[in-house]
Computed example of a mutant assay.
Amino acid sequence: MYRTSNTVIGILNSLTLLASIAIIAGALGMAKSNKTCEHFLQKPLLILGLAILIMSLAGLVGACCNVACALWVYLFVMILVIAALMGLTVFGFVVTSHGGGVGVAGRVYKEYRVEDYHPWLRNRVRVYQYWNTIRSCLLGSMACSKVALWTPLDYLHNDLTPIQSGCCKPPTSCVYNVATMVEQDSDCNRWNNDANVLCYDCDSCRAGVMETVRRDWRKLLVLNVVVIVVLIAVYSIGCCAFQNAKRPHQFGFPYGHYGRSKSQPGWDDYWRRWWTGGGRDRFY
């Protein structure tokens, strides 16, 4: 049974090694993907993937080769990963607790307002250089190409993604070509029929991007909770493997002092024989 924990750690780390490669590949692929133009999750995923990769390699070396030093690195990195995931999860729940969109009378889709979202997200999308990068990505993604072909009747029966709702059309409340004394949303003046302009500079577009981030982050938080529970369980098994790896170095016998048979002498027996046999006289 003494090697059971080492075997389990080896198998689990083989799986986490493959998972870390997938996480790193996914994070790197985000930079080249036009499907999601907000890369809030790219850097955290890349850092997480690299940490799990190092942790898995150290765990494999330590468990398979019974190297206590490698297992110590493995357990230390795992503690850091668990702490980071807990912090990211708590922060994510706080940030994503705001928003969600507002229903529009007579429409299937929702519309989104900047002021409904967490200040941290709002500050991110209001940075000029940052938003220009997102805007360029939205143009390249052709997110509005499908909506451009819709008739007014389609808007009554079809749903819209948050980005399509905020970036591809003006707010539903806007009134054009008719004189009105009612003050309109500032996004109504930002709207332009040009396919390269549309409502990409509107607050509603920023809100649509934030809603997309909020939904993606919510999915990641569920995964985070599962991963944290699994890592805590694996950490407990890793502690057993670490103790197994230390025993030969502590006592000089395979599997440790307490694993020897009754007929096999221990360090206390050698010390007793040396002391009673006059070996102590060599010091005088």
Rank of each mutant, 00 (worst) to 15 (best):
M30H: 10
T36S: 12
Y74Q: 05
G106H: 04
G106Y: 03
G100W: 04
L85Q: 14
L80A: 11
I23C: 08
G99A: 07
A27F: 07
V102Q: 08
V61Q: 01
A25R: 04
M55L: 08
V73C: 11
T36D: 08
W72A: 07
L50R: 09
C69V: 12
K110M: 04
K32G: 12
G26P: 12
G100C: 04
L48K: 08
V67T: 06
A105P: 00
C64A: 03
I23L: 14
M86S: 09
A84N: 02
I82W: 00
V102L: 07
G99W: 01
V67W: 12
M78F: 02
A70I: 05
K43V: 14
L53I: 14
L46I: 14
S33M: 06
G62I: 01
L85S: 07
Y74I: 09
C69H: 03
A63C: 01
M78D: 06
L41C: 07
C64R: 04
A51F: 15
E111V: 05
V94M: 07
G26C: 14
G59H: 00
V67G: 01
P44K: 13
G106N: 02
G29V: 13
S20A: 15
A58K: 06
A83M: 12
K110H: 05
A83K: 12
M30D: 06
W72T: 05
F93M: 09
G49I: 13
C37S: 14
Q42S: 12
G92S: 04
V77T: 13
C37Q: 08
H98D: 15
L50T: 15
F91G: 00
K110Q: 06
V73W: 03
S97V: 07
A70K: 02
F76Q: 05
L85Y: 05
G87C: 02
Y112H: 04
S33F: 10
A31F: 15
K35I: 14
M55I: 13
I52C: 14
V61T: 09
I82A: 11
L85W: 10
T89R: 01
A70L: 03
M86Q: 13
L80H: 07
L53W: 11
L48P: 11
W72H: 02
L28W: 10
V108H: 09
I54N: 08
M30G: 08
L57N: 06
A25V: 15
T36R: 07
P44F: 09
I54H: 05
N66A: 06
S97H: 13
P44D: 01
A83I: 12
V95F: 00
M55P: 00
P44S: 10
A105F: 04
S33V: 12
H39T: 10
G62E: 01
H39P: 04
